[in-house]
Computed example of a mutant assay.
Amino acid sequence: MRLNQNILLLGKKVVLVPYTAEHVPRYHEWMKSEELQRLTASEPLTLEQEYAMQRSWREDADKCTFIVLDAERWQAQPDTTEESCMAGDVNLFLTDLGDPSLGEVEVMIAGVTKLGLTKFEAKIGQENEPSLRMFQKLHFEQVAVSSVFQEVTLRLMMSEPERQWLLEQTSHVEEKPYGARS
């Protein structure tokens, strides 16, 4: 999504940067892991397919993707590459054209203030206990189970108390232009 192409979110422990071609080789290496494929319900892709996927995620109006960097490593040396600091990714999918306030999220990000989202959904494999626990800690509640896809749907309704709680949890996060290291 072009909306986040120039946004860097700087937190205490992580930095979120737009997913660019620079990140693809490391991401591709991660996705060779059978465990990661299983936990994310992903299929292995060739490197060329991974570059095409990155371009799609960047261009598609219904996706907002960030790469998670280890903030300590990234800030330690100005010449450190983002690829060497990568720790994960964050994805937000706008899945319901009839409801522009709903976004499917893989990890919570600052969608509340920039995108006007009031509902977040996460679809997680039934066996993925670490992800289920993480989203429940973030106040998501189970709303559906699909035995066909072996996944659980969790939802967070962004009431005013939830919005205030989220803003308090992320009050230390700074939004900067992407490309600014300091």
Score class of each variant (00 low, 15 high):
36 L>R: 12
36 L>A: 06
36 L>S: 06
38 R>H: 12
41 A>T: 06
42 S>L: 00
42 S>K: 01
44 P>T: 05
45 L>G: 04
46 T>K: 04
46 T>V: 09
47 L>C: 06
47 L>T: 08
50 E>Q: 14
50 E>I: 02
52 A>T: 05
55 R>P: 01
55 R>V: 10
56 S>V: 07
56 S>K: 15
57 W>M: 12
58 R>C: 11
58 R>K: 13
58 R>D: 11
60 D>I: 00
62 D>R: 15
63 K>T: 12
64 C>M: 06
64 C>G: 05
65 T>W: 02
66 F>M: 04
67 I>R: 02
69 L>G: 11
70 D>A: 04
70 D>L: 01
70 D>E: 05
73 R>M: 03
73 R>C: 01
74 W>K: 07
74 W>L: 00
75 Q>P: 01
75 Q>D: 00
77 Q>P: 02
79 D>F: 13
79 D>E: 15
80 T>Q: 13
80 T>P: 02
81 T>R: 11
81 T>A: 10
81 T>H: 07
82 E>V: 04
84 S>Y: 07
84 S>D: 14
84 S>W: 05
84 S>N: 09
85 C>Y: 09
85 C>L: 08
86 M>K: 04
86 M>H: 05
87 A>P: 02
87 A>R: 14
87 A>Q: 14
87 A>H: 08
88 G>P: 03
88 G>Q: 03
88 G>V: 03
89 D>V: 00
90 V>N: 10
91 N>Q: 06
92 L>Y: 09
93 F>E: 10
94 L>G: 03
102 L>Y: 13
103 G>A: 15
104 E>Q: 15
107 V>R: 14
110 A>L: 13
112 V>G: 05
112 V>F: 06
113 T>A: 08
113 T>R: 12
113 T>H: 10
114 K>Y: 08
114 K>L: 03
114 K>P: 00
116 G>W: 10
116 G>A: 10
119 K>W: 08
120 F>D: 05
120 F>L: 12
121 E>R: 15
121 E>F: 01
122 A>M: 01
123 K>V: 05
125 G>E: 09
126 Q>S: 13
126 Q>I: 08
126 Q>R: 09
127 E>D: 14
127 E>M: 05
129 E>P: 03
131 S>K: 02
134 M>G: 01
134 M>P: 00
134 M>D: 01
135 F>S: 00
136 Q>Y: 04
136 Q>E: 15
139 H>D: 15
140 F>R: 00
140 F>G: 01
140 F>K: 00
140 F>T: 00
141 E>W: 06
142 Q>A: 07
142 Q>K: 11
143 V>Q: 05
143 V>K: 10
144 A>M: 03
144 A>Y: 09
146 S>N: 08
146 S>Q: 05
147 S>E: 15
148 V>R: 12
148 V>M: 03
149 F>P: 00
149 F>E: 14
149 F>Y: 13
150 Q>M: 11
150 Q>C: 09
150 Q>R: 14
150 Q>I: 02
151 E>T: 07
151 E>D: 13
152 V>R: 02
152 V>H: 01
152 V>D: 03
152 V>W: 01
153 T>P: 04
154 L>I: 07
156 L>S: 10
157 M>E: 15
158 M>Q: 08
158 M>W: 05
158 M>C: 14
